[in-house]
Design a protein around this nucleic acid. Structure first.
Lengths: 354, 354
DNA sequence: CTGTTAGCGCATTCAC
DNA sequence: GTGAATGCGCTAACAG
């Protein structure tokens, strides 16, 4: 049947405890003994029983990374970076030593699934959890989340936010890395204003997300500073963070306000759909309408024309979140760090016609 | 401290065994007793101890989904679809009943990490494992993989391949869903030949991957059938499946064979880079050079001009793999199914100049 | 440095 | 339909 630690001990002529010690490597063991044990492990093709180990030690090597949409490179890049810091390099043998099992969980943006995953991870006694992406604004859900996270933290799970605003009054979270969505949104719109645009359409993300609100607030700050805040509502259309939504919303926007000379999209993916809608409408980019995105995903530089956008250091942020989750890096002061967003001016924006 | 099943039992004035039975729901329990237990669970905020449960039952609710590159939507779409079938809808309470914990693991295309993840999953006594994406051609690695998968299967883990060719002589795998990369590649090149192209460059993926080889073989089949197999080698450049590689390889290709009138890319992401290189070279698409991709990722239809490519039903395949992993769907005859690839002709391909 | 002893929290036989 | 007892495989004190 399945070979256990006792079998290995018998074959190596040592006690089970000794085998456990060499396997976990956190205790002095004589080199010769260790070799004997490792040989026995190889001979018997022994694989540690994770559940038994977790039960006895009251900890597990599971680390969860929650993302809103795994098909979106925005999350994929962060998750991959985090995972690479957590998983460790491996020893190339496939034997798997003290590695953590870094796994990503796709919530699909659903608050229920987010909670379910947290419960599942709590059940597994996860060592750490990284939550990526903006949060939902709903106070009820936020309260439930805060309670759940507090319980996880109580049980010893390290919580890290990545690209997510900090929870108010909570010490459950080891560190929160928040993107400067507001500042990025402001600088982007300032750029368009400098080019001479005055009627700027905004294809926003879902209403109830912090990311959506912060980017939009940055945009409106810039508009307001330029004395242009009359038609905020009619020039804003909300929708999901996907290509299709960008397309539909832009069509709606062009119908509603044909005079716009620029369209700012909630993110690069939405901008892609926006661009398609604009072209199908018979307008040229950027001659007739400028287009801008957010995130600077890899494909954005290859768009035609190349997309003006706001660069978020997704990989770096994800990696840092991974290190924080592992305790390999000391948290920022107050547990909160703001990650800068950099304006990338490219071919899709230009002065308005006329 | 942490509340256990015994605490719940005490509060509900029943035995631990009864609590276990209502929680697992696979045993008759009186309705009134069940209510009492569930109330106690809620009152105490009890969360099952996963490791203990897994140890006692010798099974776990963990399901692993292995992907080569989590930042690539190709994998993200499949993984998300699989996860949605496995994770179940949740009951909206965040309480997490009989749900599986579907998690995706990013191998980064590294065979070592692939093995490490399999070992980690084996250690956790995973209920199922879904392996996505092409395999490595290296016979040594294939042998190790086969052995590892056999061991997993022995331990009761269900193995499913998604977008990966079946393992020869192995009954460890419940089902293998393989994409028709060869057929898709052939039809794509046939399309270019019909347009009148004769000198076709090929920006291929990494040499050692089955996906790369199959797509390339399809291309060469078509070329051969047209009597055009003279310069196969000089017209083929290999590189990773990413944007940068497509850019670099295409520049190399244009240097090596300036007379090409069409470039076929290993996939859509590579095609994006190829297109950038072609334009920077001062050539127009498709007037001077036609470009084609593979996969039909969401952004491909929004490329300018829209990308001719081969559509792979990634979502459907991922979902099916998820169902197979859960035993919700009966495996195809022989455990092997080929998934068709559909040619999508769009604006990036046209007859050659002159 | 190594062996012995006790549980970790739950699922599962059996009885009743 | 319910309770009592046993052991899953391992780690963590203790000794020595």
């Amino acid at each position: 049947m399945t070979v256990t630690l006792a079998d290995v001990a018998a074959r190596a002529r040592v006690s089970p405890a000794t085998v456990s010690r060499v396997l976990n490597g956190n205790y002095p063991v004589a080199a010769s003994t260790r070799d004997r044990v490792l040989r026995a492990v190889d001979d018997l093709d022994y694989v540690l029983n994770g559940p038994a180990s977790s039960l006895a030690a009251a900890t597990s090597d599971l680390v969860g990374i929650l993302v809103n949409d795994i098909a979106d490179p925005f999350f994929g890049i962060m998750a991959g970076a985090a995972q690479s810091e957590i998983g460790g390099p491996g020893d190339g043998s496939g034997r798997a030593g003290g590695e953590k099992l870094a796994v990503v969980c796709n919530t699909g943006g659903s608050p229920e699934r987010e909670l379910t995953y947290l419960t599942l991870l709590q059940r597994q006694r996860a060592a750490a959890v990284v939550l990526t992406g903006g949060a939902l604004e709903d106070p009820a859900h936020q309260a439930v989340m805060a309670a759940k996270l507090a319980k996880l933290a109580d049980a010893g799970t390290r919580i890290v936010f990545c690209g997510r605003p900090p929870l108010p009054d909570s010490d459950a979270v080891v560190a929160a890395l928040a993107f400067d969505n507001r500042g990025g949104g402001r600088r982007l719109t300032e750029h368009l204003l400098e080019l001479g645009h005055r009627r700027i359409g905004y294809v926003a993300g879902p209403l109830e997300r912090t990311t959506t609100r912060h980017r939009l607030e940055g945009h409106r700050e810039a508009m307001k500073a330029a004395g242009l805040y009359a038609d905020e509502e009619s020039l804003t259309v909300h929708g999901p963070y996907d290509r299709r939504s960008g397309y539909d919303a832009t069509l709606e926007l062009l119908r509603r306000a044909p005079e716009v000379t620029a369209v700012v999209a909630a993110n690069d993916t939405v901008a892609l759909g926006a661009g398609a809608a604009i072209r199908e409408h018979g307008l040229r980019i950027p001659e007739d309408v400028s287009v801008a995105g957010f995130d600077d995903l890899p494909f954005s530089v290859d768009a035609v024309p190349a997309l003006t956008t706001v660069r978020l250091p997704l990989f770096e942020a994800g990696a840092r979140a991974g290190r924080l989750a592992m305790g390999k890096e000391t948290p920022p002061p107050g547990g909160i760090a703001t990650i800068e967003a950099e304006l990338m001016v490219r071919g899709s924006t230009a002065p308005p016609r006329g």
